[in-house]
């Protein structure tokens, strides 16, 4: 099937997901005790002020009505404004999107490159390196990102002072600073991810090495370099790409913690914070963005499949 048709079909199939997550979030958030009006009003306001805030936020309307209002607005590109700062949700999110995307993309690139390299190496050398990758994989997966983040801060930022402790430097402001500000957070996130990719790479490379066509190539004198880098890697790439896609989505979890510890103004920490404040429009918007992100990642994986595997392309 053509790439375009795949994209269209995928996007159509994703629409229910968007509805489902937004409706689900809406219902869940509305169940949250301690309504936002109470939080906004604080403790030095009067009962009338509290009711006024409720009216203004439309909290007394039936839930389906509230959701419908949100939905119709969302269709027009208006995701409402934060119940607290009054700032437009789209503007809050677009401020924060680059941070989370930088983290996730940088972590994915790092774990993709380092993981594939390590995996290849351990597949070829075996023995000690293989054990090392296994060990690193286990350690990387086992160390909670929030703890790892604290540890790398303590060691590399506070003690050694190699990298900034916190914060995010926008790319357009200072590319060097941007990269520097990502090193430690990405380390905390990517250690486990590198390990996962390395393991997957090794397994699928070993798997591919045992395929008949590789033996045919070896027997017929294809160059070992070409066999490894052209044929084995390309065939092993499919499961690696799948895992990379899954990883990108699951990195969101680690990003929540890492954004918190490194004080980076990203979407993941925004979601968590908005959840606590019951800032419904912000939660809705953030979940919407995250869902779209998940859809885009899955789409990218599918497109990579089409690119890599002619069987998908022509079936």
């Amino acid at each position: 099937m053509s790439a375009l048709r795949l994209v269209v079909r995928r996007l159509l199939a994703s629409t229910p997901l968007l509805f489902l997550t937004s409706a689900l979030t809406f219902v869940l958030v509305s169940l949250v005790p301690g309504d936002p009006a109470r939080t906004i009003a604080g403790q030095h306001s009067t009962a009338e002020q509290y009711q006024l805030i409720r009216d203004r936020l439309g909290l007394d309307q039936p839930l389906p009505v509230q959701y419908w209002n949100w939905l119709t607005q969302a269709f027009h590109g208006d995701l409402g404004s934060s119940l607290f700062s009054g700032e437009a949700v789209t503007s809050i999110l677009s401020n924060r999107l680059p941070v989370s995307l930088s983290l996730i993309l940088a972590s994915t690139v790092v774990s993709g490159l380092a993981g594939v390299a390590l995996g290849l190496l351990s597949a070829r050398r075996g023995g000690v390196l293989m054990r090392l990758v296994d060990g690193l994989a286990t350690l990387g997966l086992a160390a909670p990102p929030f703890w790892l983040a604290l540890l790398v801060i303590e060691v590399f930022a506070v003690t050694l002072r190699w990298f900034p402790v916190t914060g995010y430097v926008p790319l357009e402001e200072n590319p060097g600073g941007w990269a520097g500000s990502l090193v430690l957070p990405v380390t905390s996130i990517a250690l486990g991810a590198v390990a996962i990719i390395a393991k997957q790479t090794r397994d699928s490379v070993l798997d591919t090495m045992n395929k008949d066509f590789i033996r045919v190539m070896q027997a017929n004198g294809f160059s070992p370099r070409s066999i490894l880098y052209r044929h084995i890697l390309r065939n092993a790439a499919l499961p690696i790409v799948t895992v990379l896609g899954v990883l990108m989505v699951s990195l969101l979890g680690a990003v929540v913690f890492v954004e918190t510890v490194f004080a980076m103004p990203g979407i993941a920490s925004l979601t968590q914070q908005a959840t606590i404040q019951h800032d419904i429009p912000v939660i809705q918007g953030a979940v919407l963005y995250i869902t779209v992100f998940v859809i885009v990642v899955n789409l990218a994986v599918d497109l990579a499949y089409v690119r890599l595997d002619p069987r998908v392309r022509t079936s």
Binding site: L24, V246, V249, L252, V256, I276, V287, T291, V294
Partner: peptide
């Protein structure tokens, strides 16, 4: 597939705010 596409941690956070 649908469950797989949901951002698990975010949903868990939302659930936790419903059941603090």
């Amino acid at each position: 597939d649908l469950l797989f596409a949901l951002p698990a941690i975010v949903i868990v956070l939302v659930v936790l705010s419903v059941f603090p």
